[in-house]
Design a protein around this nucleic acid. Structure first.
Length: 303
DNA sequence: CTCCAGGATTGTC
DNA sequence: GACAATCATGGA
């Protein structure tokens, strides 16, 4: 479901800071997309000149995404970066209207309809496979603030330091890339444990070792059906159904992957009579899951 | 089958 | 203000 239509994009600079501007980002909601638990490396920009702005690091680059109305600004982004990285990362290469229609055609639940209306601006980010696998291992039995702290410490200690003074107005000037599996493997279990990862330290090292020696072939998983990718991922110690589904959905472009956590269990009990086969939501079940998740959290979990 | 392994946040008294 | 439950997974 790749969109044929090309964007009207405008590229310019402020000093040496390259900026890409999209006149109409097709309903992408920056705040919701970066605040729905799929991504741990972006933060709202204090004192932004825009209605909404988040900045952080992905694909080894420090960027900020800002929106005013339906328009989108990407700071520290050249036209080449937009075409090769951020267009796909932000899900702007997908036709979300068609995805929503597909989801809605699978169920007559009015609650699902409400969830799609409310969460419709959320896109699934196409994050990097290794970062996603590692981040969701850390996420297990954990809460979002603490997950963010641990990942931040991991990047500060083992990532590459990026210094971009021109980004001072967009959340800071200094940031760190996500460390490679080679670097984390070299660091060893004790060093990873020291970053407050707890019992997850050995899982991170097991995953890193498997990526380095080829037992966990990340690029192969991207081309495999979701269920086969899940089997490979679950060979790693510390990856079960939930972590595998999160990694597949957020890091491998598998939009049918359907992570089931306590929230989703509650949602299934509340709106689907306790019984839901993810396949019944179709090939975009994972997108539907995000809409439902956001919907339920927005309601504050009340009835 | 149950308990336990970091530890910060959230919920309950 | 003290306190317990919570979170996902594997091992004992």
């Amino acid at each position: 479901m790749i969109t044929e239509q090309k964007f009207q994009i405008k590229c310019y600079s402020e000093g040496t800071l390259p900026i890409t501007y999209l006149a109409d980002a097709r309903g992408l909601d920056i705040s919701k997309t970066f605040d729905c638990g799929q991504c741990f490396r972006f933060e709202p920009v204090e004192g932004s000149r825009h209605a909404e702005e988040v900045s952080g690091v992905a694909y080894g680059k420090y960027v900020s995404f800002a929106s005013d109305g339906g328009d989108l600004y990407i700071y520290n982004c050249t036209e080449e970066d937009f075409n090769s990285i951020w267009c796909r990362y932000l899900g702007l290469d997908l036709d979300y209207d068609a995805i929503k229609s597909d989801i809605l055609s699978r169920s007559s639940s009015p609650d699902l309809g409400d969830a799609v209306s409310l969460g419709g601006g959320i896109h699934i980010l196409a994050q990097q496979p290794w970062e996603t696998v590692c981040s969701f291992i850390i996420s297990q039995n954990n809460n979002i603030p603490r997950i963010k702290k641990i990942i931040s410490a991991l990047c500060r200690k083992y990532g590459e330091r990026l210094i971009i003074p021109e980004m001072a107005a967009h959340g800071g000037a200094e940031a760190y890339t996500f460390p490679s599996p080679e670097l984390l493997r070299e660091a060893g279990v004790d060093a990873i444990f020291a970053l407050k990862t707890g019992f997850r330290a050995k899982y991170i090292i097991d995953a890193a070792e498997r990526v380095v020696d080829g037992r966990l072939p990340l690029s192969l998983i991207s081309s495999l059906p979701t269920s086969e990718g899940a089997e490979l991922l679950k060979e790693v110690k510390g990856i079960g159904d939930k972590v595998a589904a999160c990694a597949l959905l957020f890091g491998f472009g598998k939009l049918d992957a359907f992570p089931v956590d306590v929230w989703v269990k509650k949602i299934i009990a509340k709106y689907f009579g306790g019984e839901l086969n993810p396949a019944s939501l179709g090939k975009y079940a994972g997108v539907a899951q995000q809409y439902l998740f956001y919907f339920e959290r927005w309601q504050g979990g009340n009835d």
